[in-house]
Design a protein around this nucleic acid. Sequence first.
DNA 1: CTTGCCCGGTTGTCCTACAACTGCCTGTGT
DNA 2: ACACAGGCAGTTGTAGGACAACCGGGCAAG
Lengths: 244, 244
Amino acid sequence: MATANNDGLQVAGRRSLVDATIEQLREQLSAGTWPVGGKIPTEHELAERLQVGRNTVREAIRVLVHAGMLVSRQGEGTFVRSTSDPAAVLRGVQRSGVRDVLEVRAALETEAARLAALRHTPEDIARMRAALAREAEVIASQPERADRQATVEHDLEFHTAVVEAAHNPALTEVYRYFGASVHESMRTAFGDHEMPEVVVATHEALVDAIESGDPERAESACRELLAEPTAAVEQLLATIAARK
Amino acid sequence: MATANNDGLQVAGRRSLVDATIEQLREQLSAGTWPVGGKIPTEHELAERLQVGRNTVREAIRVLVHAGMLVSRQGEGTFVRSTSDPAAVLRGVQRSGVRDVLEVRAALETEAARLAALRHTPEDIARMRAALAREAEVIASQPERADRQATVEHDLEFHTAVVEAAHNPALTEVYRYFGASVHESMRTAFGDHEMPEVVVATHEALVDAIESGDPERAESACRELLAEPTAAVEQLLATIAARK
DNA sequence: CTTGCCCGGTTGTCCTACAACTGCCTGTGT
DNA sequence: ACACAGGCAGTTGTAGGACAACCGGGCAAG
């Protein structure tokens, strides 16, 4: 993935003092230097100890507070809330490859298709068909050199509609993240022009399967649907590897 | 989950200026005020526009940078990296119910089982069997009133081993988070004592299925495995609803 | 036309000062 | 001796200024 150095090591330079401070604090936190619920040194003392300005310490602490590791209370101090960093999970995901992210998305979507078969409402089906119709329209209007950007957007819209039909907010939110992540990392890994094209027929098969109410059928239809882009991605990865 | 007001609204007071600034920026970002890859106003201008100090703006920006929404480059400016907030995903998930989280976990694990059937190594199988053996040992030593804490830990260990056998780092990390989240939210929703008990036989069936290398068989075995606790959770939710 | 330098703009860091708030300690009145 | 109010020291929150580090483009000299 092209998105490197989020907070950790910079590509080829020294990282900022704030980032260094964050890392120091994170290390001491996971090392258990201060007990959970306990108070960490004051900003002033940390600044003196680490030989940085109080502002730098403040920015570092603020980041860790928003990461859920610390809690600050004005007039009292800053306290340890958790020694593990939940945000590290997503950072790790952002670093991983296209194939891995794609598989996670597939996991979420096939299960969503199963649940959608059991819980869908007429409105859900309508939304899927609408997105599909828009997609088909764009493709029909430009048989050659279709506007990738637009089709990708409609495609994402369709898949989101499928997941929403599962009526599971947690699943929807996680999928929304991975859906965007997949497209983003594909765009950076390959060019815009090499995006795998979409096949409307398999999409319609999935809608029919969900409407039938059979989870097994929905799952296999979804798997069929995802097989195409997966194969395309594998092929692209192979050609890129060969080019190198 | 017990972790409430992370950044949003404080329990009973006005939130800090920095948090207000963060929220303002987040809103404008997801509203698409600035295009992805585009430059946001300078710290100086934002400070003047929002009527806060530059320090306040800096802390807000620093948080969003570490959340993956912005990128700062010294001498150039601060740029939009993503209009969706990955951290918001986790926060939303933490707020959702046990059933929803359980379904997400199931989605990840069944797909993991499929992949594990295709990619597992002898070491993976050994790790699963080892965890299973420890689990069986604990149960055998205390047929009645088994030590829930220990069995839950070993159970999690087993499931983690299954997911790791899929050899997908992104999947592993996401699952690790959901696995912990599921157990935590179950512990808070129900008591410790009401945790559904584990059945070793179905676990062994899953290992055998993975070892056979048949993804379909692995998936159905995994589904069978997850059906038990799911049913137990549904029942518990029903009794709790009835109690109310 | 090329090259090197300078300059305005922007983020990074530090400092001081003060505001807002908390908990404790102390002084005072009963 | 005890209760209570007030102040006081300590801590985080916010503001603003100053300078350093760095980038990009414009400009002038060759």
